[in-house]
Amino acid sequence: MPTKSAPAVMLFSLLCGTSASAAGFTVTLSPTDPALRCGAGVTPTLSFGTPPSGTKALAIIFWDQQPSKLTGRWIVYDLPLSTKALAAGKVSLTAVAGGKAGVNEAGQQGYTAPCSAGRHDIYIDFYALKVASLGLPAGAPLQRVHAAIKANKMLEAKAHVTLTIK
């Protein structure tokens, strides 16, 4: 089984957008989160900053960029506006902190950890949505959820960490 080496880059919380009123809208992931280990049985622990005024719900997509492909590993949507963090939980949960989990590109509902050897750029996209619900059931596929998010997003924040699996 592959093992994770020390992160190559420290975590940065980044704001995408130029609105000064959205300056506190952030997402944070620790580069030592146990969920980043191959075979992890838990979801990542994430913390969130304050969403912009007018936000009705929140969503996240956990992306894994490798040199040859981009994989959606975890999709959570319809999170209540009161959500300030996502604690580690079972990888197969269909309900997460009052929101819903979608089916990732591994064909699993919930989270799958990165395992293939090589460099992984992990991105967490955190979305402020202008609707209270995307109108999708739990278990919706990544492509449907992503399209609905893009159609209803007010603002997006990103976190990034790089790791190498040997």
Rank of each mutant, 00 (worst) to 15 (best):
M1W: 05
M1Q: 12
P2T: 15
T3L: 13
A6C: 14
A6N: 14
V9C: 11
M10P: 12
M10A: 15
M10L: 14
L11R: 12
F12N: 08
L14C: 12
C16F: 10
G17N: 00
G17P: 03
G17M: 01
G17A: 06
A22H: 05
A23H: 01
A23Q: 09
T26K: 14
T28C: 03
L29A: 07
S30Y: 00
S30D: 14
P31T: 10
D33Q: 09
D33G: 09
P34N: 06
A35Y: 11
R37Y: 15
R37F: 15
C38I: 06
G39W: 02
G39A: 13
A40E: 08
G41A: 15
G41D: 15
V42L: 07
T45E: 14
T45D: 09
L46A: 03
L46R: 08
L46E: 00
S47L: 05
S47A: 10
G49V: 00
P51L: 00
P52C: 04
G54S: 04
G54V: 06
T55G: 00
K56I: 03
A57Q: 04
A57N: 02
L58H: 02
L58M: 08
F62I: 02
F62T: 01
Q65W: 02
P67Q: 00
P67W: 05
S68V: 04
T71G: 00
Y77S: 04
D78Q: 05
L79G: 02
P80K: 04
P80H: 01
L81K: 05
S82P: 07
S82C: 05
S82A: 13
T83C: 12
A85I: 01
L86V: 11
L86H: 09
A87G: 11
A87W: 01
A88P: 10
K90D: 14
S92H: 06
A95R: 14
A95N: 11
A95T: 15
A95G: 05
V96M: 14
G99S: 05
G99R: 09
K100Q: 10
A101C: 12
G107T: 12
G107W: 03
Q108W: 02
Q109T: 15
G110I: 06
Y111L: 10
Y111T: 13
A113I: 03
P114Q: 12
P114W: 12
A117L: 15
G118A: 08
R119P: 03
H120N: 12
H120C: 09
D121H: 10
D121Q: 14
I122A: 01
I122T: 09
I122R: 04
I124F: 04
F126T: 05
F126E: 06
K130D: 02
V131W: 02
A132V: 11
S133H: 00
L134M: 07
L136A: 06
L136C: 05
P137W: 06
A140C: 02
A140K: 05
L142S: 06
Q143P: 07
Q143T: 15
R144M: 10
V145L: 03
A147W: 11
A148I: 08
I149T: 10
K150V: 14
K150D: 14
A151I: 11
A151F: 03
N152S: 13
K153A: 08
E156M: 13
E156G: 01
K158C: 07
K158W: 01
K158M: 14
A159P: 03
H160W: 07
H160D: 13
V161Y: 07
V161G: 07
V161S: 08
T162Q: 15
L163H: 12
L163T: 13
T164I: 14
K166A: 15
K166S: 15
K166W: 13
K166V: 12
